[in-house]
Nucleic acid binder design. Structure first.
Lengths: 234, 234
DNA sequence: TAATGTATTAACCAAACATTAACATAGAGG
DNA sequence: CCTCTATGTTAATGTTTGGTTAATACATTA
């Protein structure tokens, strides 16, 4: 049976950048519809169903935020990602250039965007559906299989994860590059949020950090008083 | 259903400038009604509902301040922006001319006005709706992510912000180019307005200034006895 | 019941944070 | 120009939060 790809609406006024990003996303197995301004974007949104919208914030005639509001009025569920700072675009472009000759093998900067996209979609689908569709995660050079509770690092013996380790890492991966609130992990994994469970969680964060040391590009950052953020550099 | 744009009443006696500014605002996705003097402005104000009024201060028959008073009597909520010195007009004109052949890509001076308008609108909408999902701000060369609490300057390591630093900078950004009253930050962020919280705030202003030193075009100005103003020069 | 894997709790230290104090400087008004 | 108040700045303090290791408790299975 033919599995259909996830569909992305990409709204970007910079034609050159838009085309490149579209190519890149399509190479990564997404169906992409590109609109070159807010109005066209909204028209296309109304005519089809999408799994994700990527909106440039700075656009003439109708900016990304305004478009997002319109989209929200039509559909309260669809995930929306903003392309904000120039830096991000530049990263993607740079990544594209770097990877152009060998993009299938080398990891490059725009993978951050890709990772975020995947994580967001997965979060959405795990919110609506109780049964988690996906249980495999790429975290830098690591590969996490959260069903078998294995964390693989190429060359090394697979690391067996305990149930708590596994759930916590999975939760972090689900929020890759984004804030994973303390309270979320505590209520979802520990089913209780108090001083002791919180300390317990810290212990597990330390354990995960130890495992993840193998790849210096992978880090669990703390956001004081808020939670943690799994980041994959480069 | 088509969502309607924000509506702006623009009162400007200089026909040429008024038309250009109107065009510029419309290109930025606002609905604009142009009146060419204070009396016409008030008539048009009474006949419709606006999200913002932009009033030229220097006008024959009825100056901007007088008009503003009348408008305020009718409506205590609507944001009012004054066009004061020539400099700003010249900036916009200059910007428009410079950008005329290439305005989609190059940033130009009138973006300050646009920034102000957007900040004002945003403030209004965040007053009414608590679910303001807006947490990314461009401040000169800096990029503030107030959800992850970091301040990025291209080339440097991201600066982690403490909760108070973060909220204060966000508040200043919300009032870009405009007065951010002391009392507002104190009541909203410190939830108390006394001598000590006020001194605490000054300490945080000093901290932010230190961070913002990287970009000489970004400054936090003090307005004696009133508050602070975040400005982005050039 | 020993062995093993797992989770919690304790204890201690380090980092992050907000406040307060102290002193210097700038602005407003007489 | 003088005085009073507001602001700029740095440092000291106390508190909360997080990082880490080890000890303990618990659970599962051999």
């Amino acid at each position: 049976m033919e599995k259909e790809n996830k569909k992305i609406l990409l709204v970007e006024d910079d034609q050159n950048f838009g085309a490149i990003l579209k190519d890149y996303l399509m190479l990564n197995d997404f169906d992409v519809v590109l609109a070159k301004n807010g109005m066209e974007g909204f028209e296309k949104f109304k005519k089809d169903t999408y799994d994700l919208c990527i909106l440039d914030v700075m656009m003439p005639y109708k900016d990304g935020y305004t478009l997002a509001k319109e989209i929200r009025e039509k559909n309260k569920e669809v995930p929306i990602v903003f392309l904000t700072a120039k830096t991000m675009k530049e990263d993607v472009l740079k990544g594209y250039k770097v990877g152009a000759d060998d993009y299938l093998n080398k990891p490059f900067d725009s993978e951050v965007l890709l990772m975020k996209i995947k994580a967001i979609m997965q979060r959405k689908s795990s919110e609506t559906k109780a049964e988690n569709v996906q249980f495999e995660f790429q975290i830098g050079k690591f590969h996490l299989n959260s069903k078998l509770r294995f964390l693989n690092f190429p060359g090394n013996e697979p690391i067996k994860l305990s149930p708590k380790e596994n759930e916590l890492l999975k939760m972090l991966a689900l929020y890759v590059e984004d804030l994973m609130p303390r309270e979320l992990a505590l209520t979802k994994i520990w089913r209780d949020d108090n001083y002791f469970t919180s300390r317990s969680m810290d212990v597990y964060i330390a354990k995960l950090r130890k495992y993840l040391k193998e790849d210096p590009n992978v880090e669990i950052l703390n956001i004081h008083g808020e939670g943690f953020r799994l980041v994959v550099k480069k």
